[in-house]
Design a protein around this nucleic acid. Structure first.
Length: 503
RNA sequence: UCCCCGAUAGCUCAAUUGGUAGAGCGAGCGGCUGUUAACCGCUAGGUCGUAGGUUCGAGUCCUACUCGGGGAGCCA
């Protein structure tokens, strides 16, 4: 298979003969011309076969080629404005089937989520999921390059963890030779130890949460990258996070502009993700939430969403009247029915949102200064600004034991969360770590954790303890934000969620 | 754990107050020289999620269960 050209390179082969290998993504045939849209690992290309003396030997076979059959095809590349991608293959001289295809379950028509998830192994051949997984791969590469280029050392932290960090109810328990261990929910404590050896380190791998949440923001298995830096305070951590997120976004904009447009992602929103990001403290966030701005935002939401529902209702009755009016071709009926279904789906979502708004208003108004930000509050804060927003200095009592107590206000810690714009939620959580032995030990005891589990961790404060800190970035939430996906399951090739383990 | 919605052909969906189960796509066959979800004609394809109940009669009504979707709580 040496003589093979990839579709992404076809612009360099105009007027030349090439051989393509790939899968039939779409096929249409007329009497004497048939069109095959071919997909290889690099893109899509339309191949046009005309029935003539040259093609007689294989024309009928090619014409009957079903969706997703794997083929080899040789022909000449022409510049062609009518074809997607600007080039197409004509004057085909050779054609063969590498692997035939049966009745392919995923058709060009719409499918339901359940069906698509059960066919995830096939679904990601389709255009949108195909693009999303490519962007994910680019983001992973951007993450690795960012840290490697800055002399961070990669440390792989264990997935079997002996002790529960913070409360065992959201961890997966594993039988480890008759001993109870847990699947890691973070590599942070381990990466802190490595930080004292290498100064700048990061880990990047899967983490697990047994949270019984069935929402569009949760997976039970997801990837997290966690850098840790020595001789650093909270400001250093925030600066690193800011540079990091900017670098990822810039890389995706550079490599995937056309893909983002295909996904329908607003490029402007991503271009707004430049330094400096917006920065507020938890206390300021609380004030905003309880103040008129938050309520106003939600009231406006309520008005626009209610108006949209009325609009949809009008459109629905109009379309339904057209449908029952008769005199339509079958395909017109099909199209109108699809429109009706889309409208109904949108209306259903809006109605749930409208129902929740009063609750969210109450949550914001009565926000407790001593508590964590809830999901709806995060959404409110992030939607008030164009750039991603850092929220710092949360109350000590709602955060993990290892976070550095604030010097001016001991009820707060030097931590930071980064909220992605447009209500996509928290993509980063980080902090300066408590480097003082006595304070850390006191916190471990206060949280009711067993000191013996953390002796090794306390050692870091016994031998050359320095101010240090880091953060964790959730890969899937970042991909969802950058691609503008409303559901996190689409960011992973094989998403694991509550009640979902196949394929 | 709680609340709302759903389950009918391989897929997406219809089926009027309870009265013979339908369409499009996909599949198969035929036609058409430029298609972009092509088009035109024909063919095949169903224990209406499971188990009970009401009724002369249940896809339709009732109960329980299973599975799925969305949300709340909880969380990163």
């Amino acid at each position: 298979m040496k003589d093979r050209t990839y579709i992404k390179d076809l612009r360099d082969h105009v007027d030349a003969q090439v051989t393509l290998f790939g899968w039939v993504s779409k096929a249409r045939a007329t009497g004497k011309v048939s069109f095959i849209t071919l997909r290889d690992g690099s893109g899509l290309c339309q191949c046009v076969l005309e029935k003539n003396d040259v093609t007689a030997a294989f024309y009928d076979e090619a014409k009957k080629c079903p969706q997703e059959a794997a083929i080899r095809i040789r022909g000449t590349i022409f510049a062609e404005d009518r074809a997607v991608g600007g080039v197409e293959m004509r004057d085909v001289t050779e054609f063969s089937v590498v692997g035939n295809s049966g009745e392919y379950p995923i058709t060009p028509k719409p499918h339901g989520t359940d069906f698509l998830m059960k066919n995830r192994h096939l679904w990601f051949r389709s255009q949108r999921p195909w693009i999303v997984l490519r962007i994910r791969a680019t983001i992973v590469d951007a993450i690795r390059s960012f840290f490697n280029d800055r002399d961070f050392i990669l440390i792989d932290t264990p997935i079997f963890a002996p002790a529960a960090g913070e409360g065992a109810q959201n961890l997966f328990e594993v039988d480890y030779f008759d001993e109870k261990v847990y699947l890691a929910q973070t590599g942070q404590l381990y990466v802190e130890a490595a930080c004292m050896a290498h100064d700048k380190v990061y880990c990047f791998g899967p983490t697990f949460r047994a949270e019984k949440s069935k929402t569009r923001r949760h997976l039970t298995e997801f990837w997290m990258v966690e850098p840790e830096i020595a001789f650093a305070d909270l400001d250093d951590v925030i600066e690193l996070a800011e540079d990091f997120v900017c670098a990822i976004v810039r890389r995706v904009l550079k490599d995937h502009r056309a893909d983002l447009e295909t996904l329908g992602r607003s490029i402007d929103v991503l271009e707004n993700a430049v330094k400096p990001f917006n920065r507020i403290t938890h206390a300021e966030a609380a004030e905003i939430l309880r103040g008129p701005k938050a309520t106003e935002l939600l009231q406006t939401d309520l008005t626009t969403k209610t108006a949209r529902v009325e609009e949809i209702k009008a459109a629905l009755s109009e379309t339904e009247a057209k449908l029952s009016g008769g005199g339509l071709k079958a395909w017109q009926q099909d199209k109108l029915t699809a429109e009706v279904n889309n409208l109904r789906e949108e209306m259903g979502e809006l109605e749930v949102e409208i129902e929740n708004i009063p609750h969210h208003i109450e949550l914001a108004r009565n926000f407790d200064d001593g508590g964590d930000l809830g999901g709806s509050n995060e959404t409110i804060i992030s939607r008030l600004y164009d750039t991603p927003t850092f929220v710092t200095h949360y109350p000590r009592d709602c955060k993990a034991f290892y976070m550095k107590q604030n010097a001016d206000d001991p009820t707060r810690v030097n931590n930071v969360d980064l909220l992605a714009s447009e209500g996509f939620g928290e993509i980063i959580g980080g902090s300066q770590r408590e480097e003082n032995y006595d304070v850390l030990l006191k916190r471990i005891n206060e949280e009711g954790l067993s000191q013996s589990d953390y002796e090794w961790y306390l050692d870091l404060r016994r031998y050359g303890s320095v101010p240090h800190g880091g953060f964790g970035l959730g890969l899937e939430r970042t991909v969802a934000w950058i691609c503008g996906l409303k559901h996190i399951r689409e960011t992973s090739a094989y998403p694991r969620m509550m009640g979902k383990i196949y394929p």
